[in-house]
Design a binder for these strands. Structure first.
Lengths: 343, 343
DNA sequence: CATGCTTACGTTACGGGTAACTTAAAGCTT
DNA sequence: AAGCTTTAAGTTACCCGTAACGTAAGCATG
């Protein structure tokens, strides 16, 4: 009787083979269904497989170098932001339907976390990586280049990606929103968002936004970058801070819809009418926008589709199909009714 | 341009060793810092490691059976529900801080998906599994029992878990809400939720709720189980359906806060005053509750903490520390102001 | 009946690390 | 200086599956 050895005590293929009275090579052939065995042998082996509850050890297969692994590493900044939760859901479902597994990494918006995660996940020989964002630390970039596996950078469309990229042009999406708001005759505009320690898509969006506003004769009189998560409550108190600064803001653009919704609620709590007293514009067109009384002015981005597209590009590359390296998933302005009508 | 060899072309330890002029065993010792080498040798090896960009192959280590892997499989029903996104975030952050990686599985609330995922993820020799829910298919249960690895069942507290469990008693949380609403003098109460093909926590909650309401002399006159996701818009149209059925409902309990919020918006759109014309109660105390004008009557559940606790139990077990197999993370009723005051 | 071909297996080697064991040289003791 | 211990290595075997190759038996063909 052997005690539970510190070693792995799971049933191995050799044990199945011995029980079935064949060599492990034959058992292996049966399990892979690649032929070269009789029906009688197959039945014997399969019977023992069921009986012993054999589960193959994919580590051994991959390790042997015959196949690549079915892991795909996916880095996401955080899940408190509904946007990224949707992107991840799109990725995981699509990968799952092709027999691939997601190895998750939450990078908390920092390059250092991302770098650490990349180092670890690469040591597991993933089939590929999907990374949120286009900015990586120099060491991370080097590891990624040397890894020799497919890499999809998502979210922030990168026209010269490490390998592949899918997302939208955040500068342009900010620009379009800026142009729309100035076309609605706003000239003193505020911004409420959050800041992180790295260059990111929200910053790029803000750049595009400012450019359009200034080009249209308006001014972004106040930009608030809170050190907080981009959700409801920061939108609420950020609005309070912004309005308290007395800069005569007529309209506020928010980093995302959750923050905009927080702002909307702040205004309601102070008896301010939207859009009569102040204009509110979000970004992302999150599900919550579907139920509020006024249609939130926002920018629609197909988050789920973005995730799916990233997974499809990954799978395409892994199947040696030709894959367009850059895919713009597009966005669409939702005029809504939380800013005043354009002329 | 290098031809892509089908084999893995990454730098191996032997190559590092050869470059440094030592045996791979010595290089291995240096990398693990376990002593038995001179400083000069260490420097030589580390120099080559940096120079060649060597990344260890953890597959080989684990495969050799000397250590268990650092993977932890985590199954989550879906990420559209903010609750589970938060739980996952709690898990992944805590696991990550202990050098473990999350292998995600979205089971879409079906046991079949869960079973398939379990089979696949077990073939990767994970160190442990964290599963949402206590109900698994018979085959899944068998595989889990045979796996011989730590398993944490979360969300729905299981007093006789496969291995460990952390969560809350959903029946009791529903019961408490039912008792509270009847104490507020509601007797005709409705429920809006979603249904899935398996027994789940929301159903258990509803059972407890009904029991308390009936015990308190009220009636759950209408239960709506939509075939949809448990988010804002289904809450909105579910409310419409429920009220249109003309069953004289005075108060509605929702599966979660997002649905309750949808209901709140529906009522507002019809000019109904809350709680004067109708009472609204949610469940989960999601972040959105922090910004709406009236405090939503809800049930606070520490989602992030729940995820962290699950990860801590997993890590404790993996470190051979004694771990309490069941942990009740608790809930707390938020009276709020969207139901009328209790007497 | 010798030859070649097919079927149904078995045998060997390998991959990348590490445990366990072995060895050579250096250092220390008396 | 002989004998013992310690240090710094090297060698071998193994983990679990699979590719590549080997082989024996059965069968058809000329």
């Amino acid at each position: 009787m052997k005690e539970k050895s510190s070693k792995n005590n799971r049933i191995s293929l050799s044990e199945v083979a011995r029980a079935a009275g064949v060599s492990k090579m034959t058992a292996s052939r049966v399990l892979r269904g690649e032929g070269g065995y009789s029906e009688k042998t197959r039945d014997k082996v399969m019977e023992k497989v069921d009986q012993l509850g054999y589960l193959p050890n994919r580590l051994a297969t991959v390790f042997a170098g015959d196949q690549s692994s079915t892991f795909v590493g996916v880095s996401i900044p955080d899940l408190g932001n509904e946007v990224f939760a949707q992107v991840l859901e799109g990725i995981d479902r699509k990968l799952g339907s092709f027999g691939r597994q997601t190895v998750l990494g939450l990078t908390q918006h920092t390059q250092q976390e991302e770098e650490n995660w990349i180092r670890t996940v690469l040591s597991w020989q993933p089939a590929g990586l999907i990374l949120t964002g286009r900015y990586h630390s120099p060491r991370a970039t080097e590891m990624l280049r040397n890894a020799g596996i497919p890499i999809v950078e998502i979210w922030d469309l990168n026209s010269s990606p490490l390998d592949m990229s899918v997302g939208i042009n955040h500068f342009d999406s900010g620009f379009d929103m800026g142009r729309y708001l100035t076309s609605c005759d706003y000239s003193n505009i505020g911004y409420v968002g959050t800041s992180h320690d790295t260059a990111n898509a929200a910053t790029t969006r803000l750049d595009g936004f400012c450019k359009a506003v200034e080009g249209g004769g308006g001014r972004v009189v106040k930009q608030l970058c809170l050190h907080d998560t981009a959700t409801y409550y920061p939108g609420f108190y950020g609005t309070e801070q912004l309005l308290a600064s007395g800069s005569g803001v007529e309209c506020i653009f928010y980093q995302n819809d959750a923050m905009a919704f927080g702002g909307l609620q702040y205004c309601a709590s102070k008896g301010m009418l939207v859009p009569h007293d102040i204009g509110i514009a979000g970004w992302g067109d999150l599900p919550i926008a579907s139920v509020i009384a006024r249609r939130l002015t926002s920018m629609h981005v197909p988050h789920l589709k973005l995730g799916q597209a990233a997974a499809e590009m990954m799978i395409g590359r892994l199947s040696d199909e030709p894959v367009e390296p850059c895919r713009d998933i597009g966005f669409r302005l939702i005029p809504g009714t939380t800013v005043r009508n354009s002329a």
